[in-house]
Amino acid sequence: MTDLVGFIVIMALAGLAFVMQRAAARVGSEAARSVLIDRIDSLLPQTQCRRCTFEGCRPYATAIAEGRADINQCPPGGDETAAALARLLGRPAKKVDHRFGVMPDVPMVAMIDELACIGCTKCIQACPVDAIVGASRHMHTVIAAACTGCELCIPPCPVDCIAMRPASESVTEVIRLAPLPAAHMV
């Protein structure tokens, strides 16, 4: 009787292993790679700032997946993102390489000096996340809530009217209002 039960258990486990192996094979390496890129991309801060030298966060993620880039090239993500990438990829943790850039202490957003703006649209073309609105020869402005602080709009500006300012609207503002009881008592 003991032998029979043991036999059944072992056969069941072997069957399970077989099924799982088949399933893994079907997923295939191509799909697996795309899943890996998605997972790397989801750890990146999506600033799209190109400090990593790639065209945006997803291209950087692709480069990491293909072994063309290291995990320590994302200054906005900081050491935390580098550590998360190290965990995901099973590599030793690394500090961010400061040659790729140094981030300010507080989150910043771009701000256009609207009096100086000549409406050249160069910053609109540079913004990777469509956070600047305006039209040719009309004043431009930055949607602060959509700005990732990538600073890509600063170099193209011919009149240097864009500056980085601390993001004033942020969660800290919401939290300041929190001491009222959180339960929704009427």
């Binding site: 991309d41 990146l44 801060p45 999506q46 600033t47 799209q48 945006g56 966060c57 997803r58 990777p128 996340v129 469509d130 956070a131 809530a145 959509a146 990732t148 942020s170 969660v171 800290t172 919401v174 939290i175």
Partner: peptide, 20 residues
């Protein structure tokens, strides 16, 4: 809350970036 906020804005940024 800060973490969720950061993630939500990262998602929005990614979407805008991809749309662009």
């Amino acid at each position: 809350a800060a973490h969720l906020q950061a993630r939500a804005s990262a998602r929005a940024s990614r979407l805008r970036y991809e749309n662009r």
